[in-house]
C-alpha cells in the first residue's frame, strides 16, 4: 500500500503579466487526512495546484511533494495522481484508450487501466469516445486517471462538480477511504458545503492569499455559536438588539448575533414589543459556512 507524503507550499507567488494570481502561499498538507483547499472562484486554487504539479512555474517560492519538485520525480504518475479539469481529454479517443495512453506515458502496468475503470464505475462506458461522456462521467474518468499509478498523493480540482447525488455520496466515502489508507488527499472546492462532510482539514485562500488553515473544527469555534433571529420589522429588531448591547448582522436567513443566548434575545424583543418570525441557534453546517464567508469576504462569494 503506497503511503502518502506531505505537500508543502513555501512562500509561493505567481504573477501573470500584471495580474498577481497567488501571493506568498505557505501551508502544509499532511498524509492520512482529507484536506479541503477552499476559496471562491478566481481565488487562485487552480493556479496553486498547477504550480504544485509542475505545469505552471512559480514566480517565487517552492511547492513540493515529499520535499521534491514534481518535475524532478522519476515516475510522477506513481507518486502523485492528479485530476485537474473535467475537459482534459481528446473527445475522439475512448475513455479506455485515454487511460492506456496515460499508463504508457507514466510507466504504469497496463492492467491498472482495467482496475481503475472498475473502481470509478466506468467499465461499461470505457469503449465510448469521451466526446459522448456526460460531465459526471468525465469527472470519473479524471479520477480514474489520477488513480492509475496507485499514488500516495492525490490532488483533485473540484472533483465533485457535475456528479449526481449518488456520485457525490460515493466520492465522499471513496476519498475518506483513500485518506484512511494513509494517503495524502488534497481536494479543492469553491463551496465549503460541498466538502464539509468529507474533509478533516481546511486550507482557505481568497484573492491569492492564505486566510486560514487548520482542522475543520477550527472554523466552528471561530463564530462561537451564533443565534439567528428575524422579524417582519427588522429595523425595530436591530434597534432593540442595539439597546440590549448586542451587535447583529443582517444576512439572508435573518439577523445573525454572534455569541448570544436565544432566550436573552427573545426577552429583549418581548420587552421592546417586536414581533419575531425566527429565533434559533445556528446549526453546525451553516455556522461553518458563515465562518467561511467571513474569511473569504462577502465579495468573494461568487
Amino acid at each position: 500500500m503506497p503511503t502518502g507524503v506531505p505537500i508543502e507550499f513555501r512562500g509561493v507567488s505567481k504573477r501573470f503579466g500584471s495580474v498577481q494570481a497567488v501571493t506568498d502561499l505557505d501551508f502544509t498538507v499532511q498524509p492520512g487526512r482529507v484536506t479541503g483547499f477552499l476559496g471562491p472562484n478566481g481565488a487562485g486554487k487552480t493556479t496553486s495546484l498547477r504550480m504544485l504539479l509542475g505545469l505552471v512555474t512559480p514566480t517565487s517560492g517552492t511547492a513540493t511533494i515529499g520535499g521534491r519538485d514534481y518535475r524532478s520525480l522519476e515516475r510522477p504518475v506513481a507518486v502523485v495522481g492528479a485530476a485537474l479539469e473535467a475537459a482534459s481529454f481528446h473527445p475522439g479517443r475512448s475513455g479506455r484508450d485515454s487511460l492506456r495512453v496515460h499508463a504508457l506515458a507514466g510507466g504504469v502496468d497496463a492492467a491498472r487501466v482495467h482496475t481503475v475503470l472498475d473502481t470509478v464505475g466506468l467499465t461499461d462506458y470505457a469503449g465510448r469516445r469521451v466526446g459522448g461522456y456526460s460531465l459526471g462521467m468525465r469527472q470519473r474518468l479524471g479520477l480514474a486517471t489520477a488513480l492509475l499509478g496507485d499514488p500516495g498523493v492525490l490532488v483533485l480540482d473540484e472533483p465533485i462538480n457535475g456528479l449526481d447525488p449518488e456520485g457525490i455520496k460515493w466520492i465522499r466515502g471513496f476519498l475518506r477511504s483513500l485518506a484512511g489508507e494513509g494517503r495524502t488527499v488534497l481536494v479543492s472546492s469553491h463551496l465549503l458545503s460541498e466538502v464539509h462532510q468529507t474533509v478533516d482539514e481546511v486550507v482557505i485562500i481568497a484573492k491569492g492569499r492564505l486566510v486560514h488553515s487548520g482542522p475543520l473544527s477550527s472554523l466552528e469555534t471561530m463564530t462561537g455559536g451564533a443565534v439567528v433571529v428575524d422579524s417582519p420589522d427588522r429595523a425595530a429588531l436591530l434597534v432593540a438588539l442595539h439597546a440590549g448591547g448586542l451587535a447583529g448582522k443582517a444576512s439572508r436567513d435573518g439577523i445573525v448575533v454572534p455569541g448570544a443566548d436565544p432566550a436573552a434575545i427573545g426577552h429583549l424583543a418581548f420587552r421592546a414589543g417586536v414581533e419575531l418570525s425566527a429565533l434559533y441557534r445556528e446549526s453546525g453546517a451553516s455556522d461553518l459556512e458563515s465562518s467561511f464567508l467571513a474569511l473569504v469576504g462577502e465579495e468573494g462569494a461568487l
Binding site: 504539479l53 505545469l55 479539469e85 473527445p91 495512453v101 496515460h102
Partner: peptide, 11 residues
C-alpha cells in the same frame, strides 16, 4: 483539447 495537462503530468 487541453490534453497538454495529462501529457505534462505524465512526462
Amino acid at each position: 483539447h487541453k490534453t497538454l495537462t495529462p501529457t505534462f503530468l505524465a512526462t
